[in-house]
């Protein structure tokens, strides 16, 4: 028996959210008197292996297979299923991110495992196996029970703290049988955004909306983000009229994020925008309209003109950072 955790690298390094998942898996392993096994597909450095161990994996299945390079979910499912069978895993953990959304549902259908997609709590085992997830686009939380013997949980990124230990994992070179199976999906082109920080992974986010009056005024938003070490984001209207790139759009139809800090500048806070950011730990709203609905969902608010306030914040943030270093 084991808890199997699907982990990934990005930009040549194990993802922070994968360490979150391993930590979470190890927590469940402790509850169920078993151990956590991490599955990693593709290249993995020694640092990645150490990090997975420190995050709580007792064993690491390292799988390299050229057929999996295309990341076709259909093949990834076959590989994950074989890993789960080899480990006799009853609980399988994914992230509720691009890969998780593509692979976890297929695996659920293949092995008839109940799936909780977007979990935000550790499971409770008293009286069955129950777990909480966000519903109604973050406006409510549902407590679900899973009744199948095999269970799949995909975690909402940034929902769980990562505690590292001195633990080291046993490394196993794992191979799977994909004879006669060819990927039907061909990747023609990958366009990665150039920003250093990917929005869903960012701990701090500075976001702005129509209140900025035009794309030429975004310099101060970028300055503030840079001073704080934050990623930049925007509201839907701003992405729709092309002031900012589409991948920066947060909200119900854009990216949903849960950073530690979300600073919203010149965004009124329509319910569809809130749905994408209300999981943020701390929300700051800067708006000249005291009636802006966003203030009702904010922890801190400044009523006033962004064009006066933001440059002062940039200076204050720079000063704060220089004192810290």
């Amino acid at each position: 028996m084991a808890v199997l955790i699907y982990t990934e690298t990005a930009k040549g390094k194990i993802k922070k959210s994968s360490l979150e998942a391993v930590n979470y898996g190890n927590h469940i392993a402790a509850l169920t008197n078993t151990t956590a096994t991490a599955l990693i597909i593709g290249e993995a450095s020694n640092d990645d292996i150490v990090a997975l161990g420190n995050a709580g994996a007792k064993k690491i299945l390292h799988l390299k297979n050229d057929k999996l390079a295309s990341q076709d979910p259909q093949l990834l499912v076959i590989a994950t299923e074989q890993a789960a069978a080899a480990e006799n895993a009853e609980v399988i953990i994914f992230l509720h991110d691009f890969t998780g959304k593509a692979v976890a549902p297929r695996l659920s259908a293949s092995i008839k495992a109940g799936l909780i997609a977007g979990a935000v709590s550790y499971p409770v085992l008293e009286g069955g196996f129950s777990i909480k997830k966000n519903v109604f686009s973050g406006k409510a939380i549902a407590d679900y029970s899973i009744t199948s013997a095999k269970k799949i949980i995909s975690l909402l990124p940034n929902s769980f703290p990562v505690t590292l230990s001195e633990n080291t994992a046993e490394l196993v070179n794992f191979s799977v049988n994909l004879d006669g199976i060819e990927s039907r999906i061909k990747v023609k082109e990958v366009k990665k955004q150039t920003a250093e920080l990917s929005l869903p992974d960012a701990d701090l986010v500075v976001s702005a909306g129509r209140g900025m009056r035009g794309p030429e005024n975004w310099g101060m938003i970028e300055d503030l983000a840079k001073a704080l070490g934050a990623a930049t984001a925007c509201s839907r209207p701003v992405a729709d009229i092309g002031w900012r790139p589409h991948h920066e759009h947060v909200g119900q139809t854009g990216v949903a994020i849960r950073p530690n800090l979300y600073i919203a500048i010149g965004i009124s806070g329509a319910i569809q925008h809130l749905a994408g950011v209300n999981g943020s730990k701390t929300i700051v709203v800067i708006n000249k309209d005291p009636e802006a609905p966003f203030f009702k969902s904010a922890d801190y608010g400044i009523i006033g003109d962004a064009f006066e306030i933001v440059p002062k914040l940039v200076e204050a943030a720079k000063k704060f950072k220089s004192h810290q270093n």
Binding site: K112, S130, T147, D299, G301, I302
Partner: peptide, 24 residues
């Protein structure tokens, strides 16, 4: 294989703390 046992509303924010715009 899964069923909702109960729902709770997401926690609202406790009152917004306002900072004077002259001292951001």
């Amino acid at each position: 294989l899964t069923a909702v046992k109960s729902y709770t509303l997401a926690e609202g924010r406790i009152d917004c703390k306002y900072i004077n715009s002259s001292e951001p």
